[in-house]
Amino acid sequence: MDHLDHLYRVAFYLTKNEEDARDCVQETYARALGSYRQFTLGTNLKAWLTRILYNFFFDAYTRNKHTLAVDLLETAEHKKNFWDTLPSANPGPEKLILQQELAAKIGDAISKIPDEFRAPIVLVDMGDFSYQEAADILSCPIGTIRSRLSRGRRLLEKLLSEYLVQDPKER
C-alpha cells in the first residue's frame, strides 16, 4: 500500500488514461500477491512492484493484446478536456490551481511522446528511480536510459515551448 500512489502515477502516465491505469494497478497487486515469494526481503520493493507493473503494461498494451480505452482518446474535444480533469488530492488556492493546469499541460505533452521516451521520464522524473533501477525495470542498458531521457526531455521541451516561460528561473 505504501507505493500505491507511485504505481498509480506510473500507470497513469504510461497508459494515458484512468481506466487502463486502474487495470494496470489492480493487475500489479494481483501478480505481486501471487508472486510474493519471488521478492527478496530487504531489496527494493518499490522497484520490484514497478517492474511487475511495467512488464504487464508492456505485454498488455504495447504488444496490442489489449486496446487502450479508445473512447477516451478518440474525439478531439474529449482529448482536449481529459487532462484538464485530472483527479487532484489537494484542490485549493490559486497556486495549486496553476499547478494543476501545468500538470495537465505536462500530462498532455508526455502522452504525445513515444513509449520508448515516455517510460524513462515516468520512472526517473516521476518515480525518482536511479538510472540503474530504471534500466532494471525496462530491461535495457543504463546508457539507453540516459539517451532516451535526454531525447524525451528535448521532445517535451518542444511540445511545451509555447506554454513554458522562456526563462526557467522565472517559474
Binding site: M1, D5, Y8, L102, G107, I110, D125
Partner: peptide, 29 residues
C-alpha cells in the same frame, strides 16, 4: 532541463489514486 524535471515531478503529484481503488487494493491485501 532542471526546471523541466522539477515541473514533471510537480505534475506527478497532481495525480492521486482514486479512493475506491485504494479501498479495493487494501481489502485484497
Amino acid at each position: 532541463e532542471m526546471a523541466l524535471k522539477r515541473d514533471i515531478r510537480l505534475a506527478a503529484r497532481a495525480i492521486a489514486v482514486p479512493q475506491d481503488l485504494r479501498e479495493q487494493i487494501a481489502k485484497r491485501g
